[in-house]
Design a protein around this nucleic acid. Structure first.
Ligand SMILES: [Mn+2]
Ligand SMILES: [Mn+2]
Ligand SMILES: [Zn+2]
Ligand SMILES: [Zn+2]
Lengths: 138, 138
DNA sequence: CCCTAACCTGTAATAATTACAATCATGAAA
DNA sequence: TTTCATGATTGTAATTATTACAGGTTAGGG
């Protein structure tokens, strides 16, 4: 089991208390949190942490491929410690974003129409089972 | 050829000069414009138009299924007169969003993991052919 | 240890979107 | 046609997400 510190080093990132805590939070909370959610959660133990630090840190994590991000909600970016390609489901009622792992996306390709593909995102939107009216469950 | 006015009526929307112009703009500009792009373009002919009207109008167009939207860029919503399911490619260099029509998404399904699916979005991100360095074209 | 580049923080600026209240226009009914 | 209520439009203010920036702090190589 690689330590968080080592994972930062591997990517050429300095290790800092804030970075460790942010990465740790993402590893433990696979809920696709927003910057604000991460900030609110970390503030408890780390009252001095700045939201700018969250933004900066997530940016460097993204650039080094330590994490991935999602733009499914349309009004705020969400972050994910899972970097292997997988799909997502957004509940339009409660806002929950779930991983969809059983759908293998056949679209992992290097180009479309002559354009170079670096990322593929498959998003589903609808109503999650918890928000489906009873009796209408599928 | 159905008139724009009729298409509004069909959806139970009142016809107004602003709505006609906004729908017309989207029909003629299949570039996935943002609210601001629509606003800047319409302002020429319609100097009194308000950005709030654009927001309100697009919202009602979306609710009635007259148009569709995209959250591919992560920092602003884009709008599309095309409502038939299709995929998109975002160039991370120039920001252009292109339709990807040749990829049939096999994911048009009514549920995933018991959650009811209402929309499916397939996004590709990378470098468009215009932004690819010469010699590296695919 | 020292030093410097890299990092963290707080605040201010920017950008996208929503809320709201006053005015105006559509279209159904008289 | 004219009337009128409802719904649409507008301008402004508020909110929210994100970025810019400057000054203080710290990690880690030498
Ligand atoms: Mn995920
Ligand atoms: Mn499109
Ligand atoms: Zn839900
Ligand atoms: Zn490009």
């Amino acid at each position: 089991m690689k330590s968080l510190q080592d994972r930062l080093k591997e990517k050429g990132l300095r290790s800092s208390y804030q970075r460790i805590k942010i990465l740790e939070y993402l590893e433990k909370n696979r809920t696709h949190p927003t910057v604000d959610a991460i900030y609110e959660a970390l503030k408890e133990k780390l009252p001095s942490i700045s939201k700018t630090t969250i933004y900066n840190t997530l940016k460097s994590f993204l650039e080094t491929g330590l994490i991935s991000d999602l733009t499914i909600s349309g009004h705020e970016v969400m972050y994910d410690a899972e970097t292997k390609p997988h799909s997502h489901f957004l509940c339009k009622s409660c806002g929950t974003v779930l991983d969809v792992v059983d759908i293998k996306c056949p679209h992992v390709r290097k180009e479309v129409d002559g354009n170079k593909v670096e990322e593929v995102h498959l998003y589903f939107k609808g109503l999650c089972k918890k928000c489906l009216p009873e009796g209408r469950k599928q």
